[in-house]
Amino acid sequence: MTDHITLKLFASLKAFTPANPDRFPIAPGTTVGDLIESLGVPAEEVKLVFVNGVKQERTVPLKAGDRVGIFPAVGGG
């Protein structure tokens, strides 16, 4: 059985948004770090990941229904 999550990539990382960000399939046990890798986002460009509105580290496993946001460094002002 495949789980689905919701994905939101910000700023320059938008280019890595998959075709189905509102219903993105993940294998059970997929971590935040696995997700970043599977999207093809260069790991060093990811500065902040939040899951269901809370900052999380790369080792955290994802579960069905999670909302994941990913931010690069932005400094414009």
Binding site: K8, F10, Q56
Partner: peptide, 17 residues
């Protein structure tokens, strides 16, 4: 507060896990 005007995402993110 994280925002994106392209799809009007406005989300409050807690910075402590």
């Amino acid at each position: 507060l994280a925002l994106d005007l392209e799809d009007y995402t406005f989300e409050i993110v807690s910075l402590y896990p």
